[in-house]
């Protein structure tokens, strides 16, 4: 599903070049879920952006469903994102001028994969039925994140990339949302790569990896991290 080989990304800084990712290798199977852990500034968000085609690596290859992102032009990357990948952010990033129903349908409409039955189920499971006509600023943070989750899953993307999706929520809400999220990702048949700082959240995933010194290593027991 996702295959990364010898991925390198550096950033120019005042003190010189900082290599955030260094010859990184990673693989992920279809329908699996992986928690990506690491210290602040270790390069977790950078890795997610590179996988989503939002950033360009210095070297290395990223393949999603066998398609190498290297060399794809801007439009092709945008097409890949709208059909194969979904992003969920800590800050939800809903479109403030569209109502909840439109926000949920947005990406599915872009790639022409609107599934009314699945939408009803998704909305029902996330408890958003009574919120559909409202606008994002009229919702609580937890509700906004649920809308972002619904948007990311409605078109059943092969890969969901989440960057601390519950980082903006309180503990109780985080657990509820995460439980729902992982369940719905499985129902949608998607793979999930999630950046998190939280061991509790990582526990929802099939496996966990740690990003340190620009490389990934498997974590057998999250509790020990």
């Amino acid at each position: 599903m996702l295959s990364i080989r010898k991925l390198t990304r550096s950033f120019a800084q005042a003190e010189g070049s900082l290599r955030v990712l260094d010859q990184l290798d990673f693989d992920m199977g279809m329908g699996s879920s992986v928690a990506l852990l690491g210290e602040s500034g270790s390069g977790k968000s950078t890795l997610l952006h590179l996988i989503a085609g939002l950033d360009t690596p210095d070297s290395g290859d990223i393949e999603i469903l066998g398609q190498n992102l290297t060399g794809l032009n801007d439009s092709a990357l945008a097409d890949m994102r709208r059909t194969q990948v979904s992003l969920v952010f800590q800050q939800f990033h809903l479109i403030p001028t569209l109502n909840v129903a439109d926000n949920i349908q947005f990406q599915a409409a872009l790639c022409g994969r609107l599934d009314a039955a699945f939408e009803t189920r998704l909305v029902g499971r996330l408890g958003l039925q009574s919120q559909l006509k409202k606008y994002p600023h009229q919702l609580s943070r937890g509700q906004q994140q649920r809308v972002a989750i619904a948007r990311s899953l409605l078109h059943k993307p092969p890969l969901v990339l989440a960057d601390e999706p519950t980082g903006n929520l309180d503990e109780q809400s985080s657990l509820e949302v995460m439980s729902l999220f992982s369940e719905l990702v499985k129902n949608a048949g998607s793979s999930l790569l999630m950046v998190t700082h939280s061991r509790e959240m990582a526990a929802f995933m099939d496996r966990s990896v740690l990003l340190h010194n620009g490389r990934l290593s498997e974590i057998d027991d999250v509790a020990k991290v």
């Binding site: 939002l54 439009s75 945008a78 994102r81 709208r82 990033h93 990406q107 790639c111």
Partner: peptide
């Protein structure tokens, strides 16, 4: 700009 970046992240093309 942050909104436009989001659109790009969701797969919206430049055109």
């Amino acid at each position: 700009l942050p909104q436009f970046a989001l659109w790009r992240a969701l797969g919206v093309r430049y055109d």
